[in-house]
């Protein structure tokens, strides 16, 4: 173990953390909005909408992000003329845009499945009860389905956040120097992969540790009734 190298390298890697966070945060925020739309399309009775959403989710979940990233970034380069004509080349020219686009499309595909699962787990009785008291469709969605679905989806979405933080490491393949990009650079120059990857690993672990704790806290806050509900059930069980 080369301690000198570790001491020299960790400030460089830590310095790249904002880039990693920016990539992950942008993709997760935009991706979440897209995921909700896709999930609703998947749940809709409209066949074409359902089909588009199904195909989209299928393709993005079935192929490695590395290949998607590559095809979006270098693929768009092959259609420069066309993209220039429709004014999109300005965006596609930038590696950051392509990285966030690929990460967003990827996380939206996974996220939509998690949200769909959440929506499907909403007890039917609650929907019926809301209808019975005359809630409109949109109110029903806003007040009943969405909040319950989100609560159900939260643990799954927590996993997705962790996966996204790690997935940003692939942005280094399209010239972005986030944590892994910097790590690869130092490794290629010093040929000491173990030392550098341990620092990088510690950084990702730390970031994801915060994510895990954050999600756990949010879970507790969103389920304020959780513990009392369990108590009630057991109390009820005693009576009968």
């Amino acid at each position: 173990m080369n301690w000198e190298l570790i001491q020299e390298s960790w400030p460089v890697l830590v310095g790249a953390v904002p880039d990693t966070l920016l990539l992950a945060a942008s993709a997760l925020i935009i991706g979440f909005a897209l995921a909700v739309v896709i999930a609703l399309m998947r749940l809709s009775a409209n066949k074409p909408l359902w089909g588009v959403a199904y195909g989209y989710v299928y393709i993005f979940r079935s192929t490695p992000l590395l290949v998607q990233l590559f095809l979006i970034y270098y693929g768009s380069g092959q259609y420069r003329m066309f993209l220039e004509d429709i004014g999109l080349w300005v965006a596609f020219r930038e590696p950051w845009f392509c990285a966030i686009l690929a990460l967003t499309l990827n996380t939206a595909a996974y996220g939509s499945e998690i949200i769909r699962g959440g929506v499907q787990s909403v007890p039917w009785g609650e929907v019926e009860a809301a209808r019975a008291i005359g809630m409109s469709r949109s109110l029903l969605f806003r007040r009943i389905i969405f909040p319950i679905a989100m609560r159900q989806a939260l643990p799954g979405y927590g996993n997705e956040v962790i996966l996204m933080v790690k997935a940003t490491s692939l942005a280094s393949t399209i010239t972005i120097l986030e944590v892994t990009g910097e790590a690869k650079k130092i490794i290629a120059a010093t040929w000491s992969p173990i030392e550098i990857f341990i620092i990088a690993g510690a950084i990702y672990l730390f970031l994801n540790f915060i994510v895990t704790r954050g999600v756990a806290m949010l879970e507790r806050r969103l389920n304020p009734l959780h513990e009392t509900a369990i108590k009630d059930v057991s109390a009820g069980a005693d009576i009968h």
């Binding site: 380069g77 420069r80 590696p95 399209i174 120097l177």
Partner: peptide, 18 residues
Amino acid sequence: IRTYDTQENLDLDLQAGR
């Protein structure tokens, strides 16, 4: 300076004008 994993990828970006 923009750095690439492989030379082929760099060629593609040179052709694309990135």
